[in-house]
Every structure is written in structure tokens, then in C-alpha cells.
């Protein structure tokens, strides 16, 4: 089972990455200026007595040596316990799980739009290499990539929600709430995917095996969709994985502009409130998702390219 071995090898390589991520998020508390305890209790009204501070230190185990603190942080995180928010005292895990469906919905839809629009635009551009559809789509994608996301979001709200009234301005709920933010988020990724698809397709369509396939009498549609795209898709899948991480991160901006509840809004609110456990939990959570997604992408890579299965 070469594929299983390949996946096993990848799984092992994830461990040091996760260690690094957990150390960075753990260290977040200590990298922020000021006494961590004061940071932790800064939301509490009134003066904090020194006994109270000492009590909190003991409660959070802050007097323990750092390695021990780290171990108990990781230990708790592994059991799904990311601590409690210092404001409402809610469990961080619960807050994230509550916000997660909205964010997943948004990211998933954005990724779908990115893949569909990006790949088809790239394929069309490569088919019309050097002619106007190619030039228009490449110029358009460059333009799109160069515009800041929040600005595009604001313009989109203004045009499609305020003036035309096609979509609700903000909030979450049915599909009508999803279309605008997902499109804004997805099209930016689509622009990057389109450019890569185009160059990847151009490279592949000049490959000898494409000419051989023609010489074997295989029809052009099959050559394009099966022989060419099947090879061209390999780098695109990698980019899709990276884009998913980018999209997850960008939900922070888009969720705020569209006032959508979600992991991104949760993170932003936590940052504004200096709610360290929530920041720490959310960042760790997003990082884990990112690593897992790229693990899945690596697995797909092996499925798509038989040569890679061997190399692992």
C-alpha cells in the first residue's frame, strides 16, 4: 500500500509543525506587553487586589515553570479544552464551535466559487492564448488581485445591497446572506487560481504526450479535459489548499465588513477586548485547520500523480 505509506509519512511530518504552532500561540500571552495576569484580568471592573492576582496566578498555574505551563496547555488543548474567555467566562472551545458553521459555510462557498471561476477562466484563457479573451481575463485577474479586499467588500455592499437591493446588507442566515461575502472572498482566490491554471495548461498542452494523444486519434475535448487538465490540475490543487488557508484568514476581514458572526469576528472581538484565551484558542484552531487541510491536499496530490506516491 504505497498510498498509505505516503499518508503515514505526511502525518508524521505534521507533528513538528503542530509543535511550532502550539508554542507560538502559547507564547502569545507572554509576547504581549505587560503582566499576563493583568492582561487576563484587565477586563474586570475596579482595582484588583494583589491577593486576587496571586489567586489567579495559582488558578491559572502561572507560577509553574514555563515548560510545565506549556505541557498543561497542550495537554488541555489535546482534550479540546482551550480555556475560558475572561469576559463572559464561556469556554473558548464552545465559542469557536458556535461560530464555526457560519465560517465554514462562508469559506466553503468561497472556495467553490474560487475553484469554478478560477479554473474555467484559466482554461479559457489558455485556449485563447494571446488573443483577447486571454488578455482580458489576465488583466482582470491582475486588477482584482491588486484591490484590497475590504474595499471590494464595501463597494459590493454599496452596489448590490444598498443600491440594487439584491442582497441583504449584513448578517447571516440563508443563501442570500452568503452570496455577496462568498463572492468577494472567492473571486480574489479565483484570480490567483486562474493565472496559475492558465500557465499550467499552457505548459501541459505543449507536452509531447498531448501531441501523441492527438496522433492516437483522441478527440480534442477529451484531450483538453482528461489529458491536459488532469496533469495541469496538480499544481492547482496545491494552490487550492494554500488558498483555503488564505480564505480562512480573510474571513476575519470579510466577516467584520459584512457583520457576519463567525470565527473571524470572534477573533477580532477578542483582539479588541485583549481576551487572550480566546485569541490563543482561535489562532490555534485556525492553524490546526490549515495544517489538516494541507495534509488532505498532500494526500490528493498523491492520488492525482502516481509519480509522487513512489517518491514518498
Amino acid at each position: 500500500m504505497p498510498l498509505m505509506r505516503f499518508l503515514g509519512a505526511r502525518l508524521v511530518s505534521v507533528i513538528p509543525v503542530m509543535l511550532g504552532v502550539s508554542m507560538l500561540t502559547f507564547g502569545l500571552l507572554y509576547l504581549m506587553p505587560g503582566d499576563p495576569v493583568l492582561l487576563l484580568v484587565s477586563g474586570v471592573e475596579g482595582d484588583v487586589a494583589s491577593e486576587q492576582i496571586q489567586q489567579i496566578r495559582e488558578e491559572f498555574g502561572l507560577d509553574d515553570p514555563l515548560p510545565m505551563q506549556y505541557v498543561s496547555f497542550v495537554g488541555a488543548a489535546l482534550t479540546g479544552d482551550l480555556g475560558r474567555s475572561i469576559h463572559q467566562g464561556h469556554e473558548v472551545t464552545g465559542l469557536i464551535l458556535e461560530a464555526l458553521p457560519n465560517t465554514l459555510e462562508l469559506t466553503g462557498m468561497a472556495l467553490l466559487i474560487a475553484a469554478l471561476v478560477g479554473i474555467s477562466t484559466g482554461v479559457i484563457a489558455s485556449l485563447f492564448h494571446g488573443r483577447w479573451p486571454d488578455r482580458v481575463s489576465m488583466f482582470g485577474s491582475l486588477l482584482w488581485l491588486s484591490m484590497p479586499e475590504f474595499w471590494m467588500a464595501i463597494v459590493a455592499i454599496m452596489v448590490f445591497a444598498s443600491w440594487l437591493g439584491w442582497f441583504p446588507v449584513f448578517g447571516a442566515g440563508g443563501i442570500e446572506f452568503l452570496i455577496l461575502p462568498a463572492t468577494i472572498l472567492g473571486l480574489r482566490s479565483a484570480a490567483a487560481i486562474a493565472r496559475l491554471t492558465r500557465s499550467s495548461m499552457l505548459e501541459v498542452t505543449h507536452a509531447q504526450y498531448i501531441m501523441t494523444a492527438r496522433a492516437r486519434g483522441i478527440g480534442e475535448p477529451k484531450i483538453l479535459w482528461v489529458h491536459a487538465l488532469r496533469n495541469a490540475i496538480i499544481p492547482i490543487v496545491t494552490l487550492l489548499g494554500l488558498q483555503l488557508g488564505y480564505l480562512l484568514g480573510s474571513t476575519v476581514v470579510v466577516e467584520v465588513v459584512f457583520s457576519r458572526p463567525g470565527v473571524g469576528s470572534l477573533l477580532i472581538d477578542a483582539v479588541l477586548d485583549k481576551d487572550v484565551p480566546v485569541i490563543r484558542g482561535t489562532v490555534l484552531f485556525l492553524a490546526v485547520i490549515y495544517v489538516l487541510v494541507n495534509l488532505i491536499v498532500d494526500a490528493t496530490y498523491g492520488l492525482l500523480d502516481p509519480r509522487i506516491r513512489e517518491a514518498a
Binding site: 501531441m211 500523480d305 502516481p306
Partner: peptide
């Protein structure tokens, strides 16, 4: 006709076959 009545063999067998099929 190509591949049927006329068979073709190209120079480089390394690149003449689609690597992922």
C-alpha cells in the same frame, strides 16, 4: 485515421505517454 489506419510512434517514449494515466 490517426491512431487507426495510421499508427504513430514518436521519438521520446519518456514523454509520449501521459504520466498520470
Amino acid at each position: 485515421i490517426r491512431g487507426s489506419k495510421i499508427g504513430v510512434i514518436f521519438q521520446d517514449p519518456m514523454t509520449s505517454l501521459n504520466p498520470v494515466r
